[in-house]
Design a protein around this nucleic acid. Structure first.
Length: 589
DNA sequence: ACGGCTCTCACA
DNA sequence: TTGTGAGAG
């Protein structure tokens, strides 16, 4: 068999995992938040600025040649009509984040709270449509709609042209860009994606109707493709990646566009193999790759350039850590200056932690202080986060803890940056009593109860009441082998019969993207990641360079496979692992 | 085994 | 660029 035939065979073999994965991505999110707040039409070029730099640019401004990394001076020069909005700021005399007229890094600290609150509202809507979704960033989510799609198909089966071809219309999104070859030969996978696209359209319409935000989406059989796909027709459009188009779609795709390959690792793969695109990467056999790269990395790359990706959508909607950071320009030269900024950071962390408690009834366990001396040598120290009883209405106890951490550094000044973060959130009930008791080594007498289902955040606002609890759905595994399309749906139907029905559509079907905004020009060409630091420095720190040495640091790639290396550091296949553990059990008895 | 610290990657 | 986040060794 020639190579393309082998590639297609590999994908076919993988098609047993016919998941429906959606990636939703808000269009120039910070800009939309500010446009909504200020009532600025989308036709007005607008950018969000943080000090002298732009951190978000709307599509009207992009059409005028404005790009993300420009300074405000360059932006005004290039587009005199541009509306520049500075992010909210605060300081010790104005502790409430507001949109000050002329904030300076010397006198103010940035607050991203308005975007966090908008984000919370968006995820609240997504939660109504998707039983399982993964909050991937402040404005991105992955949804696994497989179960919902199967449920809909079982309830309302499509007409069949023949045993394998489904009769339906593509009316729910753009198709992949490349050739629209085989448009008429629609597989079960295509049909599933079209049903997922219908749900996606409903989610996007709800976000628009209720909040006034537009977003783009990609609908595919896995996370990697869904993410690439959502960027294909921005803004305000959704794109379906049919399996038949995957290889063509990826052929000219720069590998740097693939998640986790946008940085040093991707650069190393590029230089070591002398490849830039997925198509070029496909020229290498698995053996070729494994001869030059870490075996785990080689395996992952071999699959990913063929559009094969098995990473599950991990249900997660709450943040795991919170950080308040301030870079100091010019660097702080006295500990008094540092103490002053530290108190401000404490105030922010205090407020956010308390607001979070009002919604989730959880409290952080760890407090971390990080400083960057001007020599760039970051240092951090941590301690226990003050108990809730000590932080009821003032951040004083937090300031005391943080100051003690700061005092641990002998050469803190001159200091270019300081940040405070907290993590290790625990449910309040178990954290206050049972959890501590368990951690003290009393686990033999009892088992920890499952954490109660947390309500989804209605708002991070301190003033809003906690929302009514919404049960967190139990994720259902969806990667079971698929014998044949019809039996696949039948077997899933039995398992999902007790699930609640999806919300009814709120409006008639739309052709392609919701008609909530006029067509926009395509996004600008991709920007490239900044060059990495010198290889020697990175290698000395044990960074990604070492990763490329065969058999070294392979465990770093665990997230690509959902499994971990064993104690000797070697990777196990799933079957291999089972055999090994069976042998190990036999050896023990 | 686990917690403390460092590093990478991503996104507005 | 800065300010956040997640995750891995």
């Amino acid at each position: 068999m020639d190579q393309p035939a082998l590639d297609r065979a590999a994908i076919l073999a993988n098609s047993r995992s016919l998941r429906c994965i959606v990636h939703i991505d808000l269009d120039c999110f910070y800009c939309q938040v500010e446009q909504k707040r200020l009532g600025v039409p989308t036709t007005v070029p607008l950018a969000v600025q943080q000090w002298q730099g732009l951190i978000a640019v709307n599509y009207a401004a992009r059409a005028a040649g404005i790009q993300r990394h420009m300074t405000v001076t360059d932006a005004r020069q290039k587009c005199p009509d541009i509306r520049l909005v500075h992010v909210a700021t605060y300081n010790d005399t104005h502790p409430e984040p507001t949109y000050h007229a002329n904030p300076t890094p010397k006198s103010h600290k940035v607050s991203l709270e308005p975007y966090r609150r908008a984000s919370t509202q968006i995820f609240q809507i997504i939660a109504r449509f998707a039983k399982s979704f993964e909050r991937a960033s402040i404005d991105e989510a992955y949804l696994d709609l497989t179960e919902d799609v199967v449920q809909r198909i079982v309830a309302d089966p499509p007409r069949m042209v023949d045993e394998t071809t489904v009769d339906f219309d593509w009316n729910v999104g753009e198709l992949g860009t490349v050739a629209e070859a085989d448009r008429e030969s629609k597989t079960w996978g295509d049909y599933m994606l079209s049903v997922a696209a219908g749900i996606t359209r409903d989610v996007r319409r709800a976000i628009w109707d209720e909040l006034g935000f537009t977003c783009s989406a990609g609908i595919a059989h896995n996370k990697t493709l869904a993410k690439l796909c959502s960027a294909l027709h921005k803004p305000n459009k959704q794109t379906i990646m049919r399996q038949i188009l995957v290889l063509d779609f990826l052929t000219d795709m720069p590998i740097a566009k693939i998640r986790s390959l946008g940085g040093k690792l991707g650069t190393q793969v590029e230089t070591q193999l002398n490849v830039r695109t997925c198509g070029e990467l496909r020229q290498f056999s698995l053996e070729d790759l494994q001869a030059q790269l870490d075996p785990a990395l080689a395996h992952w790359l071999y699959n990913i350039c063929r559009g094969i990706c098995e990473q599950p959508v991990v249900t997660r909607s709450k943040t795991k850590s919170m950080m308040a950071a301030k870079s100091l320009r010019p660097p702080a030269t006295s500990t008094q200056q540092l103490d002053q900024w530290l108190a401000i950071l404490c105030g922010e962390v205090f407020t956010r932690v308390r607001d979070d408690f009002d919604v989730y009834q959880r409290w952080p366990r760890q407090l971390v202080l990080n400083i960057r001396p001007t020599n760039g040598d970051d240092r951090s120290r941590s301690c226990a986060f003050p108990p809730r009883a000590h932080l009821l209405d003032s951040p004083d106890a937090l300031v005391a803890k943080a100051s003690a951490l700061l005092a641990q550094f002998t050469n803190a000044v001159p200091c270019a940056a300081i940040s405070l973060q907290c993590h290790g959130f625990e449910d309040a009930d178990t954290a206050d009593a049972l959890g501590k008791w368990m951690r003290q080594g009393n686990a033999s007498a009892a088992t920890v109860p499952d954490a109660p289902n947390a309500p989804f955040a209605a708002s991070a606002s301190a003033t809003s009441a906690p929302p009514a609890p919404v049960p967190v759905p139990v994720p259902v595994p969806v990667s079971a082998p698929v014998p044949a399309p019809t039996s696949f749906f039948a077997s899933h139907a039995a398992r999902i019969s007790t699930s609640p029905p999806p919300p009814p559509p709120t409006a008639p079907p739309l052709n392609s993207a919701p008609a909530v905004a006029p067509a926009r020009p395509p996004p600008p060409p991709p920007t490239h990641a900044p060059p990495p630091p010198p290889a020697a420095a990175a290698a000395a720190r044990g960074g990604a360079w070492a990763l490329l040495e065969k058999d070294r640091h392979s465990a770093r790639l665990a997230h690509h496979f959902g499994r971990k290396p064993n104690r000797s550091g070697r990777w196990r296949g799933r079957v291999d692992g089972r055999i090994r553990s069976a042998r190990a059990r036999a050896a023990e008895t």
